[in-house]
C-alpha cells in the first residue's frame, strides 16, 4: 500500500499538475489563438521554440532550467529579489519547469482547434455586432472545446509523467518537490518493488482511464460538427 512518503509524492504531483495546467491554459490560449491567426513571417521560429520540449532530452531542458532558476540565473535572481530565495529546488521552480516542459502539449491542440474553426464564424459574429473579445469567448472558445479538453488532459497527464526535468531542478525533497515518478525511481533503487508496483500500476490505470474518457468525449463532441 501507499506509505506516507508515497502519499506526499502523490499530493505534490497532483498539485503540480493542476497548477501547471491552469497556468498553461491561461497562457497557452492567447498564444495558440495568436499563432492560429497571425501571418507573421517568423511564426515558424516561435512554433519550433514551443515544440522543442517534444524532442529535447528532458535533462537538457532541466540543465538549462537549473541554471536559469538558480541563484545566479535570471529567473532565480528575480525570485531572490521577490521572495528571498532562488527558484531551483522549490515547488515554484517545478511549476516553471512543468509549464515550459508541457507547453507544446497545450498549445498545439489549441492551435489546431482554433485553426480548424476558420475565419468565417468569427466574421459572422462580427457582422452580428460582437466585439473581438465577445466573439472569441462566445464563438471561438465553444467551437474549440475539444481542443481545450485535449489540451487540459495532455498538459495535466504530461506534467504527472515528467521525470528528467524534475530530477534536475527539483532536488527530490519529500513533501516539497518529490513527485510520483521520482518516488517510483527511489523505490526501485531501494529494491522496494512492492511499493513501486502500487505507484506504477496506479499511474498506468489512471492514465489509461483518462485517455479513454478523452477519446470518447471527443467522439461525442464531433457529432455536433455536422457539415455546413
Amino acid at each position: 500500500m501507499l506509505n506516507e512518503f508515497d502519499l506526499n509524492a502523490l499530493i505534490v504531483t497532483l498539485k503540480l499538475a493542476a497548477i501547471s495546467t491552469v497556468i498553461l491554459l491561461l497562457f497557452g490560449t492567447p498564444l495558440a489563438w495568436w499563432l492560429s491567426r497571425t501571418r507573421w513571417k517568423l511564426k515558424a521560429l516561435l512554433e519550433a521554440l514551443i515544440a522543442l520540449p517534444l524532442v529535447l532530452p528532458p535533462t537538457v531542458l532541466g540543465f538549462y532550467l537549473l541554471i536559469a532558476l538558480g541563484s545566479n540565473g535570471p529567473l532565480g535572481e528575480i525570485s531572490q529579489w521577490i521572495s528571498g530565495q532562488p527558484l531551483a529546488f522549490t515547488f515554484a521552480g517545478l511549476v516553471v519547469g512543468s509549464v515550459i516542459y508541457s507547453l507544446p502539449f497545450v498549445v498545439q491542440p489549441l492551435q489546431n482547434a482554433f485553426s480548424s474553426i476558420g475565419s468565417r464564424p468569427m466574421e459572422v459574429a462580427a457582422t452580428l455586432g460582437a466585439t473581438p473579445v465577445d466573439r472569441f469567448l462566445t464563438v471561438a472558445v465553444p467551437l474549440a472545446r475539444t481542443g481545450f479538453v485535449t489540451a487540459a488532459v495532455l498538459g495535466f497527464a504530461h506534467t504527472i509523467g515528467e521525470f528528467g526535468v524534475v530530477l534536475m531542478i527539483g532536488g527530490n525533497i519529500p513533501g516539497e518537490t518529490q513527485v510520483l515518478s521520482i518516488a517510483i525511481y527511489d523505490h526501485v533503487e531501494a529494491l522496494e518493488y512492492g511499493n513501486a508496483h502500487w505507484l506504477a500500476g496506479g499511474l498506468l490505470l489512471a492514465s489509461f482511464i483518462t485517455l479513454v474518457v478523452v477519446y470518447s468525449l471527443n467522439r461525442r463532441f464531433s457529432l455536433f460538427k455536422g457539415g455546413d
Partner: peptide
C-alpha cells in the same frame, strides 16, 4: 454569406 455559416454550437 454564400454558405449559411450557422454557429454549430
Amino acid at each position: 454569406f454564400q454558405e449559411p455559416s450557422l454557429f454549430q454550437h
